[in-house]
Design a protein around this nucleic acid. Structure first.
Lengths: 148, 148
DNA sequence: AATAGACAGTTACATTTGTAACCATACTCT
DNA sequence: AGAGTATGGTTACAAATGTAACTGTCTATT
């Protein structure tokens, strides 16, 4: 079969996916094995930790997760007492989400791990590799931001 | 909360994942909606289409998928008559996988779409963005290849 | 040749995910 | 005010996935 004109190995979506899985999986060990968090949970924690009080919808927008993922993550974090909800006074559909003291503590610990991992990535990929990757991603992000 | 020292938005694993989802999803429409293929199925098809006859294990290595994913994808493609298996003469554990004529045809059609999408990406990301992304990914791939 | 270990691929089960339908509340327009 | 529609969030169900155990075959060692 004509191997000439298409090679999965060079196809950008494939490469991007594979790289993302690889990079993410390494870090997932930190929150998964150590804290038993799922990815949506970690993302929710990180969103609330860095931006403070937000609604579920905002968390979803911030970390590009579907409502249902956010909803489930919020439940899980709430059960752990890492997060608390409060009703919006004016609109009872909305609920504000906020980390508890315990949640904030976990967040700080995890961000420390995240920073360590970032540093590790820099040495692994090299300054140039990192820079290239980052600016490539910025290009993608530019496209994502567009109205479509 | 201290938003200063960590921002999910800048965390590479997060950015990479988000970009990969975005890029992959756009193309997934092509094989998902149009042919009803799952991603593992498309990858298997692509591996066999570009490299010809392979074993399931080889497909997995080539496209970094777990055995079970490959196994299920092979089943699905076989049911569609896009793929046939033949036993290895010397080792009856092994089976060779190969596309049928129908499978090869589908592969060709899909590679056409893949090429179109690649071209679209080039215009979307710009020559420079694409180049940066590609070399950034190459850096990651270099790390992946290492013995670990 | 007999036992033990490795390997290819499959299957079973639990977990995660995506889709769509669903509540409840709020807004808009007449 | 009342009908229709939009929105925040949850739930139910189906499909996809990961983990681990399993079957069958091969290889090595004795």
């Amino acid at each position: 079969m004509d191997a000439i004109d298409f090679d999965l190995e060079q196809f950008l979506p494939f490469r991007l996916n594979r790289a993302a899985e690889f990079i993410a999986l390494r870090f997932a060990g930190a929150y998964k094995a150590k804290y038993g968090l799922t990815r949506p949970e970690w993302r929710t924690l990180a969103a609330l930790g860095s931006s403070g009080r937000m609604t579920a919808t905002e968390v979803g927008a911030h970390s590009t997760m579907h409502k249902t993922k956010v909803s489930r993550a919020v439940f899980a974090l709430e059960e752990r007492r890492w997060l608390k909800r409060t009703q919006h006074e004016d609109d009872r559909r909305v609920e504000h989400l906020e980390l508890t003291a315990a949640g904030a503590k976990a967040y700080r610990e995890l961000t420390r791990l995240a920073r360590d991992y970032s540093a590790e990535l820099e040495t692994l990929l090299g300054k140039d590799g990192l820079k290239a990757l980052s600016s490539g991603l910025a290009a993608v992000e530019g496209v994502m931001a567009k109205p479509r």
